[in-house]
Simulated assay, not measured.
Amino acid sequence: MTPSRADAAADISAAARSPSGSRFGLVRRHRRYFAIVVFLLLATPLVLGVMRPDPPAAILKEGRYLAPAPTIPAAGDDWLTLSSRIDAFLGDHFGLRQALIRAHKDLTKPLLGFGNDTVLVGRDGRLFYLGQEAVQQSAGLLVRDHRVSDTVDLLARMNAALKARGVKFLVAVPPNAATIYADDLPNWAQNAGRRTEYDLLLDGLDAHGVQAVDLRPAVEAARSGGPVFYMHDSHWTARGALAAFNAIVDADGRPDWRFDPKSALGQPEVREGGDLARMLGEDATETVEDLTLPAARTELLTADPVSDFVGTLDRPGPTIMVFGDSFTQDYFARMALQRAGRVVWLEYHKCGFDWKAIDRFHPDEVWWMPNERFLICDPGAKPADFTG
Rank of each mutant, 00 (worst) to 15 (best):
R216E: 09
V171H: 01
W355Y: 14
L26H: 11
L265M: 10
L41T: 09
R126T: 09
A67E: 07
R315A: 11
A247E: 01
F353Q: 08
A14R: 12
D250S: 11
L82A: 06
V213P: 02
G193W: 14
I180L: 13
E269M: 11
V143A: 06
G113K: 06
S4N: 09
G21H: 02
G388E: 06
L66W: 01
R126M: 08
S138I: 02
T387C: 01
Q211I: 08
D260R: 05
P379A: 14
F259V: 01
V152M: 00
R97D: 10
A336C: 08
L112M: 15
F114E: 11
R157Q: 12
P261Y: 14
M335S: 07
A238S: 13
L170G: 01
A277L: 08
S224P: 05
R17A: 15
M1F: 13
A244C: 07
A340I: 05
Q98N: 14
D206Q: 14
R334L: 10
T179G: 02
A189I: 10
A16Y: 07
D233A: 15
F361L: 05
H232Y: 15
G274W: 00
A69R: 15
R28D: 05
N176K: 04
D275C: 08
N116I: 06
L170Q: 12
L80T: 12
V38G: 07
A156P: 06
D78N: 13
K356T: 15
T237R: 01
F39I: 10
R147V: 03
D206I: 04
D117P: 03
G204I: 04
A241Q: 00
P19F: 11
R64H: 11
R64Y: 09
T328C: 03
D233P: 10
A238R: 02
F24L: 12
R23H: 09
Y33G: 08
D199V: 07
L130G: 04
A251R: 12
A238V: 06
V47M: 13
G266E: 04
H93C: 04
S4V: 07
P186D: 14
A192I: 07
A238G: 11
A67I: 09
L162H: 07
V119I: 06
D250L: 08
T81Y: 08
N116T: 06
V152R: 02
R373I: 05
F245T: 00
L215E: 06
I101E: 10
G274T: 02
A14S: 10
R216L: 05
S13V: 11
A134G: 05
F89K: 04
S307Q: 15
L46S: 10
K163L: 09
A251H: 11
T179F: 01
M51L: 11
F245K: 00
S4F: 03
T302R: 13
P370T: 15
P316Y: 09
G388V: 07
L154T: 03
D275F: 00
L242F: 03
Q137P: 01
R31Q: 09
A75Q: 08
S13P: 01
M158N: 02
M321Y: 03
L127R: 04
V228Q: 05
L293K: 14
L82N: 06
E282W: 14
Y230N: 08
E289Q: 15
L26T: 11
T196I: 03
A251V: 07
G63K: 02
G226T: 07
R5F: 14
G113P: 00
S138K: 03
V344D: 00
Y65E: 12
M321A: 06
W368A: 03
M335Q: 10
G281K: 01
E347I: 04
H93G: 05
